[in-house]
């Protein structure tokens, strides 16, 4: 299921134009990272994908549905959106109710709902915390509850808004694992992130936003090498990429494996 964005513009009631003319096509099954400085308009952009925000002009299509003509509740069957701040997303008494909320609304059968919930809880390692109140969990685990509650909806498109911000290394690995799992299932995963190493290791395509516009868009390998342009939106290439540049490696490297291979070839 493709996402098609055409000449999207969005102005907040305060008069601030947060998205100033973005056109993008995100293919089914793609793993896309969106990067860019704070206030670049990343959250504003993805909130259009599930209809929480409506374009001031231009259009967003999810498959054959125009978000202008489709309710948020209906779009929820195609687009799952994990909020930037789990405290804005969680509202149930306990983890199980929270995770069941989405699939139940989507009208799946009891068996299917139970299966999806169980799988989401297992993926996020929450299976032993089902009766806990989300607010009694640490922020890192609250984030996992937010993830689980969206994964359980089994939507073809999943959006993560800064999933790794403020998370410890163990949890970042858990989140990466969840994303890899969704990828295996052929889902489209769109992730907003400031963590450029996380971006380099987990995503094939990178879109860099700056001031409400697309600055760069392409394969991660190409984009992450463009140090000067990325600097415009205050994004630094991953450490290994920068080190590789300094060592004058021929190709842009993104992770340890590529780096070591390049070094080995040169030696």
């Amino acid at each position: 299921m493709n996402i098609e964005i055409k000449d999207l513009r969005f102005t907040y009631p305060t008069g601030l134009e947060a998205v100033s003319g973005i056109s993008l096509t995100l293919e089914a099954g793609e793993q896309v990272a969106i990067v860019g400085q704070n206030g670049a308009g990343k959250t504003t952009l993805v909130r259009h994908f599930n209809g929480l925000l409506q374009p001031t002009s231009g259009s967003v299509k999810i498959g054959d549905w125009d978000t202008k003509k489709t309710s948020v509740a209906k779009l929820a069957s195609r687009v799952g959106y994990v909020f930037q701040n789990p405290d804005e997303q969680l509202f149930s008494r306990d983890v199980l109710t929270e995770v069941t909320f989405g699939p139940r609304n989507l009208g799946y059968s009891k068996e299917k709902t139970d299966g999806l919930v169980e799988r989401a809880l297992a993926l996020t390692e929450l299976s032993d915390k089902t009766e806990t109140n989300p607010y009694d969990l640490s922020p890192t685990w609250r984030k996992m509850v937010a993830l689980a509650s969206i994964i359980a909806m089994d939507t073809p498109i999943v959006i993560f808004d800064e999933p790794t911000t403020g998370q410890d290394a163990v949890n970042v690995a858990r989140i990466a694992n969840v994303i890899a799992e969704l990828q295996k299932e052929g889902k489209t995963v769109i992730t907003i992130t400031h963590d450029i190493d996380f971006c380099a290791e987990n995503f094939e395509r990178v879109v860099a936003l700056s001031k409400g516009q697309v600055l760069l868009d392409g394969p991660a390998r190409e984009i992450l090498g463009q140090e000067e342009i990325l600097a415009q939106t205050y994004v630094e290439p991953p450490q290994l990429t920068r080190l590789g540049k300094r060592l004058r490696l021929k190709e842009t490297v993104r992770n340890q494996e590529e780096f070591l291979n390049a070094i080995a070839r040169r030696a």
Binding site: N50, L52, S71, V72, A73, K74, A76, S77, G80, Y81, F83, E88, Q89, L90, F91, S92, R93, F101, G102, N105, L106, S149, I150, M153
Partner: peptide
Amino acid sequence: AAQRSRGLDTESSFFKRAGSLIPLVGP
């Protein structure tokens, strides 16, 4: 916004809308 993003229909019939107030009160 959080509940609608997870498929809670708050836009359709009056009863659904009134019903959707209930999950709102607790939180």
